[in-house]
Amino acid sequence: MLVKVLSSSYLGIEPFLVEVEVYVTNGLPIFNIVGLGDTTISESKDRIRSGIKNMGYFLEPRRVVVNLTPANIKKRGSHFDLPIAIGIMIGMKFISDYKGVLKDYILMGELSLTGEVRGVEGIINGVLLAKSKGFKGVIIPEENMDEASIIKDIEIIPIKNIRDVVKFIEEGVVRSKRVLNVSKVYQNNLDMQDVKGQIRAKRALEIVAAGGHNIIMVGSPGSGKSMLAKRLIGILPPMSESEIIETTKIYSIAGELNERVPIVVNRPFRDPHHTSTATSIIGGGRVPKPGEISLANNGVLFLDEFTEFDRVVIESLREPLEEKRISITRSLGKMEFPAKLIFVAACNPCV
């Protein structure tokens, strides 16, 4: 029996649709996953088997082949656990999608050995993809509910375990949804009015905030450079809805979201240490991920002790500060990350 379940993945910050094809048939009891999946996806076999069994279902020794389409693009992440598991359960006739629910929803989620569904990275990208493709909604872990709730006009189905998915597919039963209280999301409390004196420096930062300019502050240690820089985001205008979504996408992919900060509603302020590498500042790696310059998108990147940074790091800032984006090319392809930010540097004067 061939079952098709929809999921998503992403290159850079751009999502794309992944069709999870699950073929269950008689034959030698093997479990193969094809379609250019990474090690995390290959290891999902044991999580899926244990998760289904611990939910009370008996897995017969059958031949299972899973194909992740398109097969020519590398896929990574543990969020394919859920769609693969549901495909197997339908293929083995544990459940029936007689209402045709699966063709209208994208599924994402990592399985534990007990069958619980855990939160994953990049959920908001999948939600945006589902909305742009005209799907009815997404089925996601309850842990990611707050992150996904900022996308409007699409149905969000939060689940806690495999049984919740079964109830929704067969009966349309949905766990109670909570509404995100944005006022309880972490807010920046640093205020420019706390700074006494420094009239010229504060005036310079007002001009920076008004025009989106970059600035370098030179002064003796303890003169207040870091204090002023940290309060710059307090005089910047509030983030628009599109800026909140764009910035949250980047933080979701980078794994920077948590229970305290489920979405990014404040302009980000990033201040990496001067020993940071070029890759951590600009982004990249074997599997390209956003660096500090992209995590500061729509906010402020502050490099204290600027002259102590490696020359490669300083030279690497030229293009992204001018183009407002950073392009990273690997064998996987070319990926672009946004870098629309205010750059603030600070250093001590020569003596």
Rank of each mutant, 00 (worst) to 15 (best):
I326M: 08
T25S: 10
A85F: 01
M55Y: 11
E315V: 06
A148E: 04
I245H: 05
G172S: 12
K177E: 14
K340G: 09
G333V: 06
L257E: 01
V20I: 06
V351L: 13
G126V: 01
Y57M: 05
I33D: 00
E155S: 09
K324N: 14
K289T: 04
K289M: 09
R118E: 05
F135M: 13
E147I: 14
L301Y: 03
V265M: 05
Y186I: 15
L180Y: 04
P70E: 13
E256R: 12
G126D: 00
V22L: 06
V20K: 00
I216H: 12
L321I: 08
G12E: 04
S176W: 12
V182Y: 15
S294W: 01
G35D: 03
H274A: 03
E308N: 09
E305R: 09
I216T: 14
V261M: 12
D191R: 13
R311C: 07
P158M: 12
E143D: 13
A254C: 04
G284L: 01
E21K: 01
D104Q: 08
N67S: 14
N72L: 13
K74F: 14
S96W: 04
I88N: 01
A204C: 15
S7I: 00
N67E: 12
V179Q: 11
V351S: 12
E43P: 08
E170I: 05
P158D: 06
L295P: 01
L301N: 08
E305H: 10
G35F: 01
I48P: 00
K99D: 04
R260Y: 10
R178E: 15
E256H: 14
G172T: 14
G134A: 05
G285K: 02
F337K: 10
V351A: 11
R286T: 10
E305A: 12
D271A: 07
M192N: 09
L107S: 02
F269I: 07
G91M: 00
F16S: 02
R286F: 04
L11A: 08
A209E: 11
G211S: 13
Y10D: 06
G137T: 10
R325E: 13
R311M: 15
S223M: 09
P320R: 01
R76C: 10
M227F: 11
K334L: 12
G35V: 04
I328F: 06
Y251M: 06
N54A: 12
N189L: 15
I157S: 03
K152E: 15
K103M: 04
M217F: 05
Y57R: 07
L59D: 06
L128A: 07
T114H: 11
G27W: 06
G87Q: 06
S252L: 10
S96E: 15
K103F: 03
A130Q: 03
P29E: 08
D304R: 08
G122I: 04
E259Y: 08
I124S: 10
G197N: 14
V264S: 00
L11I: 13
P83L: 12
A201L: 11
L257A: 07
F343G: 02
M92Q: 13
Q187L: 14
L128K: 09
D153H: 07
F337G: 07
L232E: 03
K136N: 11
E256K: 15
D191N: 14
S331G: 13
D194G: 15
L303D: 05
G100M: 08
I123R: 01
L36R: 06
L129M: 09
V64I: 15
V127F: 10
A85R: 00
I88F: 00
A339T: 04
K177H: 10
V265D: 07
